[in-house]
């Protein structure tokens, strides 16, 4: 696809304008992370009157007894496990919905979507009681194990929808070659699902990284806390809030998911014309 020059220019002008709107608030946050506490909200200048780098150092050790390194490691471990769990379990569960016929398929599919529809807030306490009964409180298990059991139905449905887009001739050919469902799944579907697997990886990483409420409920010891929990510790209902340090750590906290996105994205956009299903 070649584009005529004026069209290409127009496209870039549009993209740059849009980028500015998108990025302005983030820049405000970034510059705010260098401002003095009494300047962020009272002085309307966009640029800091003086760059205060110590906001970062102070923020890094703002939780007594620990540094953010500890929280980053914890978050990283949880998120990577959730990514692994989501990919494995969701690929498995999506396959029969997309490709096989089995009794009660429609019912199960409705149940699958149905579990998305009840607001999680009323499930918080019953779920907490279950995890408490099996002794999982104050461990990472309630945050990680459900991912391996495809509890995040969003990804399952995403997978189903993608697998349905893969031409059936491919698996038919495989079946003719004598492949059973397992090998069809491994040899045909999975390789063709690469874009969506990366999509699931990006989302599951980001969502478990950004999750706050579950982590808050299940983790008690500060040593086990995550980045989001640590960020929340800047905000007390009465004490001083160090906005500069809060912004600084907020900026740092979006780096890991940003890097994940940056490196994963090429897998779902590389050369449209050359890829596709061969």
């Amino acid at each position: 696809m070649t584009m005529r020059l004026p069209l290409a220019v127009l496209k870039h002008v549009m993209l740059i304008a849009l980028s500015l709107c998108m990025i302005y608030p983030i820049l405000w946050l970034l510059l705010g992370s260098f401002k003095a506490n009494n300047e962020i909200f009272t002085v309307s200048s966009f640029w800091p009157s003086e760059f205060i780098w110590s906001n970062y150092a102070k923020g890094w050790s703002a939780v007594p007894g620990f540094t953010f390194a500890n929280f980053f490691l914890n978050s990283m471990m949880i998120s990577l496990l959730v990514v692994a769990g989501s990919i494995i379990s969701c690929c498995l569960v999506a396959f029969p919905f997309a490709r096989m016929t089995f009794p009660l398929k429609r019912l199960w599919f409705s149940v699958l979507l149905g579990t998305l529809m009840l607001p999680g807030q009323v499930l918080l306490i019953p779920r907490y009681v279950i995890f408490s009964d099996i002794g999982w409180i104050n461990t990472y298990l309630p945050l990680v194990v459900p991912a391996f059991l495809a509890t995040n139905v969003f990804f399952v449905y995403l997978m189903i929808q993608f697998m349905r887009g893969i031409p059936r001739e491919l698996d038919e050919a495989a079946i003719v070659d004598g492949c059973g469902p397992f090998r069809t799944f491994l040899l045909i579907l999975l390789p063709n699902c690469k874009p969506v697997i990366y999509t699931v990886a990006i989302f599951s990483f980001l969502w478990s990284w950004d999750d706050y409420f579950e982590q808050l409920l299940y983790l008690n010891e500060v040593r086990k806390f995550t980045v989001q929990l640590a960020l929340q510790m800047f905000v007390d209902n009465a004490a001083q809030i160090q906005w500069g340090s809060l912004f600084a750590m907020s900026i740092l906290s979006i780096l890991p998911p940003m890097l994940v996105f940056f490196f994963a994205q090429k897998h779902f956009v590389e050369g449209v014309a050359t890829s596709g299903i061969k």
């Binding site: 409420f213 808050l216 409920l217 500060v222 929990l229 007390d236």
Partner: peptide, 13 residues
Amino acid sequence: LPEYSGFDGYETK
């Protein structure tokens, strides 16, 4: 054994 946190969600927890 100290368990300290921010205020948001403290009560729900």
